[in-house]
């Protein structure tokens, strides 16, 4: 390795490390803060001088961590699964069935992505209220399903680029549309479907405004709404809030850690063909 190559490698690595530190810092800071006593909260040390578990004790005593994580996880999983199902069906239908207005539907889907969600909050709330969906899981999840428009557009491209001869071969083998979709198209689009599922899940998990409106009671509240409880007019309890944030993040990290091998494999599988 020449000096020039070495320098290039080193500077590339330095950049990567810098980006990693930059994105990891808030997380590390949150973890660090969660172990600090009230007096040390604003102390600028990364490692707490006098670490304490008080924040965790107090949070676990008063804050329904399990409930919130379960609520959010269930809603996000259901939303991601249903969005994926809708997106797959819509994309396949739009590609494989030529019908009048098909292009209009596609354009409308693109337009739906452009409209900011905040514009729809009031009409959605009124609709949900009239349907009796306030403080229900259905009310939490249903409006989020519309977020699959992006997925439809993305999958539309993938289905359109799907090898025509495979579809023809399946048809000659005796497969109808349902069989073609579930047994030929979907297994071969697994990488993009996994990517979309992760994206849908994270988006739904991070949803804040809508859950705040329709599920502010503790029974159906989600993580993001729950964390809000630590910010009060009397001041913010940073220590406990960070302890709560760490507690609700842990299960997701754990789940990702367990599924990581599978997720990465799904991504890689598509490139190996």
């Amino acid at each position: 390795m020449t000096v020039r190559e070495l320098r290039a490698t080193l500077s590339a690595h330095a950049l990567v490390v810098l980006v990693c530190v930059f994105s990891a810092l808030p997380v590390v800071w949150a973890v660090s803060t969660s172990f600090k006593g009230p007096a040390a909260i604003f102390a600028p040390d990364l490692v707490p001088a006098d670490p304490t578990l008080d924040n965790y004790r107090a949070t676990l005593a008063t804050f329904p961590v399990a409930r919130l994580v379960l609520n959010t996880g269930a809603v996000a999983a259901a939303v991601a699964a249903l969005q994926l199902l809708l997106a797959v069906l819509a994309a396949y239908g739009l590609v494989r069935f030529r019908f009048r207005g098909g292009p209009v539907v596609l354009t409308a889907l693109a337009a739906a992505i452009i409209v900011p969600q905040q514009c729809l909050i009031v009409p959605n709330y009124l609709l949900a209220a009239q349907m009796g969906w306030i403080d229900t899981y259905v009310g939490l999840a249903a409006p989020q399903l519309a977020g699959c428009a992006l997925g439809v557009l993305l999958l539309h491209q993938h289905v359109r680029a799907f090898p025509r001869s495979l579809l023809d071969a399946a048809q000659i083998d005796g497969a109808g549309h349902a069989t073609v979709l579930w047994r030929i198209v979907v297994p071969n689009l697994r990488p993009v479907l996994v990517a979309l599922a992760v994206l849908f899940f994270i988006t739904s998990w991070n949803e804040y405004l809508w859950p705040l409106l329709v599920a502010s009671g503790t029974e159906r509240a989600t993580v993001q709404v729950g964390l809000q409880a630590f910010q009060t007019e009397q001041g913010n309890d940073w220590g406990r809030m960070m302890a709560a944030a760490v507690l609700v993040t842990a299960p997701v990290l754990l789940a990702y850690g367990l599924a990581q091998r599978w997720i990465v494999a799904a991504f890689v599988q598509g490139t190996g063909r």
């Binding site: 023809d168 071969a169 048809q171 000659i172 030929i184 297994p187 071969n188």
Partner: peptide
């Protein structure tokens, strides 16, 4: 008649084997 009722088999230029 649709393809599946015709009792024909086809070999494609790119073979069209199901990759999965």
């Amino acid at each position: 008649e649709p393809a599946r009722d015709r009792d024909v088999a086809m070999v494609f230029q790119d073979f069209a084997l199901y990759p999965h």
